[in-house]
């Protein structure tokens, strides 16, 4: 479904990604594991069209989307639950959700999807008229997920969705991702809770200093000594 080939990305002179290749198959959960500053967010933003890669191809359903503008990438069905949630703080919860459905692919069924999201996330239903900036971290993360789903994505890239949440809230977010995947959503997952993300993932990649150094099934990486030492503290 998504194939990344030899992707290079630079911030000015600093290279953030060097020759990154990976694949997300339809219906899979693919985990990316890496230390702070490894380039995980840069990779997601490059795929989303927010950052322009210097070299390489990004194929989505066979079409090269490298260099396409972000709103066009979104409209092809690649959604994002971004690092830091990126809700619109002064807009209401309701308006935030509607913003997820501004892309043409999602316009027709906006009202229907809105009802679906409010049923899926009852905490948001109670707060539809409230400014998003006044929500708790967990509620904002729910909002970010719901807003993304308003765009009817086929693939969602989650960037540290449980960061800064209480353990119970973090678990709820991971459970939501599992549920969405069962309903057919393909997922690319960057998660600080490495053990949990490798357990969910069918495939996983280790990103170090902007390059993929290890890849395999989630279970294989979970058992790998290097991963256990570097990321699981064992």
């Amino acid at each position: 479904m998504l194939v990344v080939e030899n992707l290079d990305l630079c911030y000015g002179d600093a290279q953030a990604l060097a020759g990154v290749s990976l694949e997300v198959r339809q219906g899979a959960v693919v985990a990316i594991v890496g230390a702070n500053g490894a380039g995980k967010t840069s990779l997601i933003r490059a795929i989303a069209g927010i950052l322009k890669p210097k070299r390489g191809r990004i194929l989505f359903r066979g079409q090269n989307i490298a260099g396409l503008e972000s709103h066009r990438v979104c409209n092809l069905g690649i959604g994002q639950v971004a690092e830091g949630r990126q809700v619109f703080p002064t807009l209401t919860v309701h308006e935030n959700l509607l913003m997820g459905a501004m892309i043409p692919r999602a316009k027709k069924r906006r009202a229907e999807n809105l009802d679906r999201m409010l049923a899926l996330f009852p905490r948001l239903r109670e707060r539809t008229g409230q400014a998003a900036g006044t929500l708790s971290g967990g509620e904002q993360q729910m909002l970010a997920i719901a807003r993304c789903l308003m765009g009817e994505p086929e693939l969602v890239m989650f960037d540290e969705p449980s960061l800064g949440l209480s353990p119970a809230m973090a678990q709820a977010v991971l459970d939501t991702i599992v549920d969405l995947n069962r309903q057919g959503l393909s997922c690319l997952l960057v998660e600080q809770n490495v053990a949990a993300s490798l357990e969910l993932a069918s495939d996983a990649y280790v990103l170090e200093n902007g390059a993929i150094t290890l890849s395999g099934t989630g279970a294989a990486l979970l058992a790998d000594d290097r991963v256990r030492q570097a990321y699981l503290g064992m």
Partner: peptide, 18 residues
């Protein structure tokens, strides 16, 4: 609302495909 969203959080606007 989309204009207010872009003024509010430009990254967020790009993320949702505005």
């Amino acid at each position: 609302a989309a204009i207010r969203a872009a003024a509010d959080n430009l990254t967020g606007a790009a993320v949702v495909g505005l």
